[in-house]
Design a protein around this nucleic acid. Sequence first.
DNA 1: TGGGATAACATGGGATTTTATGGTAGTCAA
DNA 2: TTGACTACCATAAAATCCCATGTTATCCCA
Lengths: 148, 148
Amino acid sequence: MFLSTSHNKIDLKCRVSIPASFRMNLEKLKEPLILFKSLQFPCIEGTTLTRMQRYINAIDELDALSDDAFLLRMMMADSFEIKFDINGRVVIPDILMSFASLTSKAVFMGIGESFYIWSPSEYENQYNKSQKILNEKGPPKLILKKNE
Amino acid sequence: MFLSTSHNKIDLKCRVSIPASFRMNLEKLKEPLILFKSLQFPCIEGTTLTRMQRYINAIDELDALSDDAFLLRMMMADSFEIKFDINGRVVIPDILMSFASLTSKAVFMGIGESFYIWSPSEYENQYNKSQKILNEKGPPKLILKKNE
DNA sequence: TGGGATAACATGGGATTTTATGGTAGTCAA
DNA sequence: TTGACTACCATAAAATCCCATGTTATCCCA
């Protein structure tokens, strides 16, 4: 599972260290890493190949001409299988760098089954937005289910 | 699996480099590459021979005398098994070049089980269309499905 | 509990390999 | 013999690999 938040530097080659805990999670699952454009936010989403594979399989089950199928295919096109170097770094593709307005710093945000990579300023925007909602409306009602 | 988007040049002999990751995918599957006219868009679709076979089988399950079956057969007739040169390039047949309005640049768009080859301007159209749908209707529902 | 030793991590830089692409020579058929 | 097609060579640019280093975190023993 991907948890916790951390800040890492992006160098001139668009390399960035993926937080060690995220890497260990992927290693334990023996899963390659996929990065793609978030469909909800101006940030990058990271997840496992298996999870991405589920989206692909879903496309074939949809009406091939539907909007949903179309959007999913566009999402695949903006997805990249990413390899680590020996030090646990990855290169962020140009397309994703500009989509998420990344330059020299990245904020990693674990959200369970996947994680986000934000630019510091977009992250702050989003953080403030959610704080505001929390103050105005109070915490969301959460109903926790038992395991299994 | 075919993922990611990239832009390559088409030379005067209609040669173009297939992105290395797409080539490696085909090699791993030990599958020949098939190029054919997309049934939905003014672009070329590339896929494996095995998947092409599945398209053909699907046509056979239609009413053989229907207009749909005839139309699909016409489209499939312009399918080509493509060979790579030693550098990973292919020659795009004239019929497909003009069908997709290709001239000097090609956009390769991986969509999972197959990939598209677009002219840059058509690609931009499609991309803008997807952003519009995303803004108006939000992300596809099945994104929210849980594991298993 | 403190503080030094050790390991893990993040990051910079340079060497090496891969990739994309232009070009040329050879082959076959009309 | 010409034109189209194929196979292969050459090169620049880009991606990748791997070593070096400083910094932070962890461990262990006094």
